[in-house]
């Protein structure tokens, strides 16, 4: 398990927790929008993919019906906004029959204690 609480520089980072899958609702897009704006303002931002939010990272996504934009290009854009810390709940991957090899971006996995520790260590966070 990776220690989530050590990095002093991150204690004031804004943690955006993404819990919804792409396409079916606008939660994921609107959550990423908040992350991008915060980063554009120079704030350190981290993302935690929990629950159905892990589906956001699934490899091989495309635009939706009626040309609905996907969120995968937004996720690929994160590095341009210097958002580099992506945390994923290992248990939520397991529950959905996925592994990190199914994901489109390099991530750091957390066990349940790690998820709780990350939440506890970040004074500023928003769930989408």
């Amino acid at each position: 398990m990776t220690d989530t609480t050590q990095s002093a520089s991150s204690s004031e980072a804004l943690l955006i927790v993404l819990r919804h899958p792409p396409h079916g609702s606008s939660w994921l897009r609107e959550g990423i929008d908040v992350a991008l704006v915060a980063a554009a303002f120079g704030r350190e931002v981290e993302l935690l993919f929990q629950g159905d939010g892990v589906f956001a990272l699934l490899e091989g996504q495309a635009a939706g019906a009626l040309d609905q934009k996907g969120t995968h290009p937004q996720l690929k854009m994160l590095e341009m906004y210097d958002i580099e810390r992506l945390w994923v709940s290992q248990r939520d991957l397991d529950r959905r029959g996925l592994t990190v090899d199914d994901l489109m971006l390099p991530v750091t996995t957390l066990d349940p204690d790690g998820v709780a520790a990350l939440h506890a260590a970040r004074p500023l966070s928003l769930i989408f």
Binding site: R19, Q50, G51, D52, S89, R91, D92, R95, P112, V115, A116, A117, H119, A120
Partner: peptide, 16 residues
Amino acid sequence: SSGIFADLLDAFADGD
């Protein structure tokens, strides 16, 4: 309802 309680309990820490 789907998954919310599971995710919440994963995030629940001592003192919460």
